[in-house]
Amino acid sequence: MLFTVDIGNTTVAIAGLEGERVAFVKKLPSDPGLNWPAALRQLLEGVEAQGAVLSSVVPALTGPVGEGLKAITGKPVLVVDKTTPTGLDLSGYDTANLGMDRVVDCVAALAMYTTPVAVFDMGTATTLSVVDRGGLFRGGMILPGLALGLEALSARAAQLPPITLSQPEGLLGTDTVSCMKYGALYGAAGAIEGIVRRLEEELGGLTVVLTGGNSTLVRPLLGIPTAWEPHLTFLGLGEIWKGNN
């Protein structure tokens, strides 16, 4: 088994990868104050792994989580950064502030789907990453995530309450809460459809892949064909591990 770790802005997600199968996913909050060696040992108690690989968009957590995983596995952790060979051609992109989670997603998508491919990762932020027919990372977009957009509405408008997202029961809301919910969900779906239409005009045929926690809510609302892979980042980390071991 391989520990594959995605350190995000909200959660640190750890998946146990057995070949191409995700055996489990466990999560901890992205809390810099956590005693990470102790927390990880408790979370992964009784699970043996041959090693660990991680990607991170929270630099302050990369070291503590990596050291905790090293203590558990007894082996150095492969931290995917800009120097790590991934097989993805980044020559046309300024990588100074590129989140490695986007790279990892694209590595998995290239292994699983035909190009050109567009990956929408719907988490705290919604990121779009595009790889063209020749395997070149063309770039993408970063949009506010669904929860972030709703939090901004609630914070800046006195009469708009905090809400919890769930699957819509129709197209039009009939009260303030449902109007906010439907606006966020159908707005995200409309944005994806519009972006994909423009990408197809530029790149030709396109494989659209959705991943991330909010993708389960948005995908049923889309009027375009998509692939859905909830474990895309973990699978990409597994591919990178294989390429470096």
Rank of each mutant, 00 (worst) to 15 (best):
T4V: 15
D6A: 04
I7T: 11
T10D: 01
A13N: 13
I14N: 13
I14Q: 13
G16C: 01
V22M: 04
L28W: 10
L34V: 12
P37V: 03
A38N: 12
L40K: 10
R41A: 15
R41C: 01
A52D: 03
L54E: 07
S55N: 08
V57E: 14
T62H: 12
G63F: 04
G66E: 09
E67R: 14
E67D: 13
G68C: 09
P76M: 01
T84F: 02
T86A: 05
D89K: 06
D94V: 06
N97S: 13
G99R: 13
D105C: 12
A108G: 02
A109S: 04
Y113G: 05
V117Y: 03
V119F: 09
M122I: 02
T124A: 13
T127Q: 07
S129P: 00
G134F: 00
I142H: 10
A147G: 02
A152C: 13
L153D: 03
R156W: 03
I163S: 03
Q167T: 11
E169G: 15
L172V: 13
T174W: 05
V177D: 08
S178G: 02
Y182I: 04
Y186V: 07
A191T: 08
G194T: 02
E200K: 15
E201N: 08
E202S: 11
E202M: 07
G204H: 08
G204N: 08
G205C: 04
L206D: 01
V208G: 04
L210Y: 01
G212C: 01
L217T: 06
G223A: 07
I224L: 15
P230N: 14
T233Q: 10
N244Y: 03
